[in-house]
């Protein structure tokens, strides 16, 4: 099995790693780059815990291969967090109790991060659609949706 040298940008930093073709991008991020914030809840594309942003679009880290990341710009939860403290989205999730065990949380943060990067005033329906592919076993989603609604309001107020 041939190893591939793959170079890409993750959270603003250029990285180059040697990967087996069969390694998923999530495994490469977690195992080789130490970015363990990207979680694996199913490894078959359904739970959304591994959601990251690839070239500005949300993607399942478990359904991309590491080799496919060549040249890509990748954002993970680590990169979506400020150096200190919490982002607007993260702060709202905390305030509205949008997390319990925290396992789905990085995926939720990234899905919402993408939503707000393309739409600063989403409706409740748009919020739901944005997280419809993210499973959370703990919260029942209500706190997450409320948090996102608050973010939308706060972004509006800022403008």
């Amino acid at each position: 099995m041939t190893l591939h040298q793959v170079s890409f940008t993750v959270n603003g930093k250029k990285v180059s790693v040697e990967v087996e073709p069969r390694q998923t991008l999530a495994d490469v991020l977690r195992g080789q780059l130490g970015l363990t914030g990207t979680h694996l809840g199913c490894e078959h594309g359904v739970c959304g815990a591994c959601t990251i942003i690839v070239n500005g679009e949300p993607a399942r880290g478990c359904l991309m291969l590491g080799v496919q990341a060549e040249g890509a710009e990748i954002l993970t939860v680590e990169g979506a967090s400020p150096d200190e403290g919490l982002s607007l989205i993260q702060e709202a999730l905390r305030e509205f109790h949008g997390l319990q065990c925290g396992f789905c949380t990085p995926g939720m943060v990234m899905a919402l991060h993408h939503l707000f990067s393309v739409n600063t005033s989403p409706t409740e329906e748009e919020i739901k659609e944005a997280i419809s592919g993210q499973l959370c076993r703990c919260t029942g989603y209500q706190g997450i949706v409320n948090a996102a609604k608050a973010v939308a309001q706060r972004l509006q107020a800022q403008q």
Partner: peptide, 13 residues
Amino acid sequence: DARFLRGEGRYVA
């Protein structure tokens, strides 16, 4: 919450 939100939770994996 902060550590979970920042992806700094430490789960066994």
